[in-house]
């Protein structure tokens, strides 16, 4: 048969994509040029609006704002990660009471705005000062920064618990069964077989969560923690200079971009054995 006689050279291939100036191609180039012009315009504006006096006066504030943002998010993510383990365990529990409690926790903290949670913690606990004094907790809630850490940690713990749960459950059941047939203990299975596979799945969502927290933390000035965004607003209200917001946007972009690359790098490291 002629079909079976075909050599590798005469295999039927799909036609080559048409070359030339298709509509999409023109649109694509147009958009790239537009973006490039906007980028150039932005840089040109920043150069033309450069004001050394302004920079010297307000740059230290920005630096302290970046410090507040990073430490707030850093501490909250770590505390949230620790809290998320028992919550994820509760979400997967067969005990209806534990599962219900964990579900309610996640339901509340994912279903209400972070802004409302921060406000509730800061001003809500503030109105229970005598009671908090009595149990010796007021020193903690007196500081706005602690209140922010508290609210942010609880919030991110809910999201991280769901990420963790989803990742663990994404590992096929056969892995558990296989480990059990080899006589491995449940905790051993979790640590040596399930988690290494689950964390590959969880890495991207974790990265998203950190990035969302960095941007979400911009609301914290409402409870008098002057992070990068709070400093920016203060600066703007004194200078009425629009570039104060532009600088904040650029700094946020740089932070997020750095994180993105870090996560890419980690992913490449931990999936080396999957590369083909």
């Amino acid at each position: 048969m002629s079909a079976s006689m075909q050599t590798a050279d005469s295999v039927e291939r799909p036609p080559l994509p048409p070359h030339g100036w298709s509509r999409q191609r023109i649109l694509g180039y147009g958009l790239v040029v537009l973006w490039a012009f906007m980028g150039i315009g932005l840089v040109a504006y920043l150069i033309s609006a450069w004001n050394t006096e302004l920079f010297q006066k307000y740059a230290p504030g920005y630096v302290s704002g970046i410090g507040i943002t990073l430490s707030l998010v850093g501490i909250s993510i770590v505390v949230g990660a620790i809290l998320s383990v028992p919550i994820a365990y509760g979400r997967m529990s067969r005990n209806p009471v534990i599962a219900g409690l964990a579900y309610a926790y996640v339901y509340f903290f994912r279903g209400t705005p972070l802004l409302a949670q921060a406000f509730l913690v800061y001003y809500g606990f503030g109105s229970f000062r005598p009671e908090l004094d009595a149990v010796g907790l007021w020193w903690f809630f007196r500081e706005a920064f602690n209140c922010a850490i508290f609210a942010f940690s609880l919030n991110t713990a809910a999201y991280q618990a769901e990420i963790l749960r989803g990742a663990i459950q994404s590992v096929p059941k056969g892995q558990w069964e296989g480990a059990a047939s080899l006589g491995l203990h449940k905790l051993q299975t979790l640590r040596k077989i399930i988690l290494p596979q689950a964390l590959i799945v969880a890495l991207r969502p974790y990265g998203n969560e950190v990035i969302l927290m960095i941007k979400g933390s911009a609301i914290v000035a409402i409870i008098t923690v002057y992070d990068l965004m709070g400093i920016t607003r203060l600066t703007y209200s004194r200078t009425f200079d629009f570039q104060s917001y532009l600088w904040a946007a650029i700094i946020y972009l740089l932070i997020v971009e750095t994180l993105r690359h870090a996560i890419d790098w980690i992913e490449r490291r931990i999936t080396r054995h999957l590369k083909r």
């Binding site: 001003y123 503030g126 109105s127 000062r129 008098t224 203060l234």
Partner: peptide, 30 residues
């Protein structure tokens, strides 16, 4: 705010978004 930051340099000046919020915090002792 401008007066407080310029004058009370030995104190901590905390800016609030509105008057209601510093009133809450003065009442609760922050």
């Amino acid at each position: 705010f401008n007066y407080s930051t310029a004058t009370y340099t030995d104190s901590t000046v905390k800016p609030y978004p509105t008057a209601q919020e510093y009133q809450l915090d003065l009442a609760n002792g922050r």
